[in-house]
Nucleic acid binder design. Structure first.
Lengths: 221, 221
DNA sequence: TTTTGTTTTTGATCTAGGTCAAAGAAAGAA
DNA sequence: TTCTTTCTTTGACCTAGATCAAAAACAAAA
């Protein structure tokens, strides 16, 4: 139980809460293990609570009638997901699947709402989490509708540079096919764009490692 | 002041709060009038508070370097906007402009955060508002990336049928060019799709009124 | 290693829908 | 009304990127 509240304390959601609150929160969390590729929930399932990633990676996605998928988010350690039904209406708006073996904490809706009601700083943290997510969605809509695929890839690479705090290279943490689905394109097109950017001397692709040769050129796209 | 808290009471955000709270909320709201086409804020401006539409219509949108615009939301009476910076970081993630003459209430950040902290049910209402908005964004991303333009138009028409509670016809509340920008396409393409759907006997276009001839056929798209 | 399954790349082809230009229709303003 | 200004439609053309098919490269397991 010690380790559990330690992880919780590092997340944006439970950040800054006093130890006393943290242990109450830890008390209602149920740990669950999922193998790689497991379904956590489907779009339309009733949302009886939300999850927090302890370790591993989870994708949230929509699928079209003909099987194409669009990834909305990829969440890693410390990030919560599936909160929408907790605060507004019942069914999950999208599907959730693990991208690797994963350990998750599940927070049942009613208990959690009680905690939020009793703990103003938890409520403000949750508001911050949702506000950040809205900001990310706005950026994703901008990318999908106002930028072409090279521009979307460029902004994703800049995002990874930021996240991994490197100016010279980044490592893709998901297969290229999944990246294509996140950027709203096909694996074939993404592969061609990687090729084009290499030709143009912007990057060098070495498997999952992308060497950034021209950070400024990347801005342009 | 009486009228003000009456309007507030009808909004999802302040719904169900006791009169005492409502008057406190009304006390910090500052009324402002904007003419049609006025800019309320730009992307990147510091967010010192949020707004609620008393009457009129407001669009929230992103623009590309070459001037194309993508509308993220259109808000009418009773709907709040610009809350993201209140709860997470400072700058507005998008632009806001009036689509008609509009009366807005402005809520300064600090005072409002104090109220939220002191009023659990207000916090839960705000969480519901943001959760609903996430759900809408997820649907918009799905539309942009998994559906073609006819499908997007069809789901917008179904949305209007729902909203206006009519099965036989709906009235567009914005110009067709703005609708194109909301659906992530151009005015020309939208016009052609309206034409095609009319040919196919799905709808009949009479100016801003769209007569729904075949609700089931509309489902298909 | 060799085998088998999964990613990734490459080639060839096709089309939805963007863009440019201009004409028509509506809607306000004078 | 008549004049402007803003919306909407139509025509002609063009390209980003999807799709299909198949080879190649990797990775995991036997």
């Amino acid at each position: 139980m010690q380790k559990k509240s330690e992880l919780l304390a590092t997340s944006l959601l439970f950040n800054g809460l006093p130890a006393e609150q943290l242990s109450k929160i830890a008390a209602i969390a149920v740990g669950k293990h999922y193998p790689k590729g497991a379904t956590i929930f489907h779009e339309g399932d009733p949302g009886i609570g939300f999850y927090l990633v302890a370790n591993g990676k989870v994708k949230i996605f929509k699928t079209s009638f003909d099987g194409k998928e669009q990834i909305l988010h990829i969440f890693g350690a410390g990030e919560p997901f599936g909160e929408v039904p907790v605060f507004y209406g019942s069914p999950f708006p999208a599907n959730a699947t693990t991208l690797s073996d994963a350990e998750l904490y599940f927070f049942p809706r009613n208990e959690f709402v009680d905690l939020v009601t009793a703990t103003p700083s938890l409520a403000l943290n949750m508001l911050a989490v949702l506000a950040l997510r809205l900001r990310r969605f706005a950026a994703q809509i901008e990318n999908l509708s106002l930028k072409e695929v090279p521009g979307r890839l460029a902004s994703h690479l800049r995002y990874l540079m930021e996240e991994q705090k490197r100016r010279d290279k980044v490592v893709l943490d998901i297969p290229k096919g999944q990246l294509a689905s996140l950027l709203g394109t096909s694996a074939e097109t993404l592969s061609r764009i990687f090729g084009k950017m290499s030709e143009d001397g912007l990057i060098r692709v070495e498997g999952k490692t992308i060497v950034i040769l021209d950070p400024n050129g990347l801005q342009e796209h």
